[in-house]
Design a protein around this nucleic acid. Structure first.
Length: 235
DNA sequence: GTCCAGGGCCGTT
DNA sequence: AACGGCCATGGA
């Protein structure tokens, strides 16, 4: 009995339950008539190699100035954006990235994210990757959580799990993504089901890796220590 | 004080 | 293709 991404997903879901990602302030967007997908896009940039608690502070600063929309950000000087997103770290480069992306959506789609997302997944992905500051993980997070596209997001946590748990994949972004999607699609072919599974699975991996499978893991508390090689070294 | 967090770019090998 | 240096804050 070997572990597969699907059996791993089932175990994590059973233990940690639904995570309801991506965390977004729905009430704010209802009251201000703004597009929550833009908050997800900005959040995906701001959380690059950064703790989410710091991203929350930066997003709150943007909201307090009512800047969390495409038109407003594209009009704001980068220095002002940098000051507001300072808590999220790397604030100078992230300010440039955030503004460039807002300008892209403004110029090419007239601020209508429906027009941007309502195309083939691969087409959207290539366009996202062409933007400076958007690499594979950021692009796929935006595709999955803002665009509801069936894409599995790989992050540092996912790579760490793959290094520790015996899974049949090489440790690179493309290999892991292809392997996970191949295994999950053996069980589910419906696109909307896949979106839900990829959504929950990635969120579950983050929660599990944050709390248990850390750099210095808490193997005693781990629900899958039996199938993990790494835990045998550390216990 | 040290380590780390929901990466990506750019230059070098 | 793969790797190292760099970007930076705030919490543990």
């Amino acid at each position: 009995m070997t572990e597969t991404p699907y059996t791993l997903y089932k175990k994590l879901f059973k233990h940690y339950n639904k995570q309801n990602w991506w965390p977004v302030d729905k009430k704010y967007h209802e009251e201000n008539k703004t597009d929550p997908r833009f908050e997800i896009i900005i959040g995906a940039i701001l959380t690059q190699n950064t703790a989410w608690s710091n991203v929350e502070k930066a997003l709150l600063n943007l909201k307090s100035k009512k800047l969390l929309e495409i038109k407003k950000i594209s009009k704001t000087p980068v220095e002002n954006i940098a000051g507001l997103i300072r808590p999220s770290g790397y604030y100078n480069q992230k300010a440039v990235r955030v503004k460039n992306i807002a300008e892209h959506f403004k110029q090419k789609y007239n601020m209508d994210l429906n027009r941007f997302f309502n195309r083939k997944t691969e087409t959207i992905r290539k366009e996202l990757l062409s933007l400076k500051g958007v690499g594979p993980e950021t692009a796929d997070s935006i595709l999955l959580y803002a665009g509801n596209q069936p894409i599995f997001v790989v992050d540092a946590y996912t790579k760490r799990l793959c290094e520790r748990i015996p899974l049949n994949t090489k440790i690179s972004y493309e290999h892991i993504q292809h392997y996970f999607q191949k295994e999950i699609t053996k069980k589910h072919s419906n696109s909307e089901e896949l979106v839900q599974i990829y959504n929950e699975f990635h969120a579950l991996i983050v929660v599990f890796a944050k709390n248990i499978c850390k750099k210095k893991p808490k193997c005693q508390e781990c629900i899958i220590k039996k199938i993990c090689n790494f835990s045998k070294k550390t216990i």
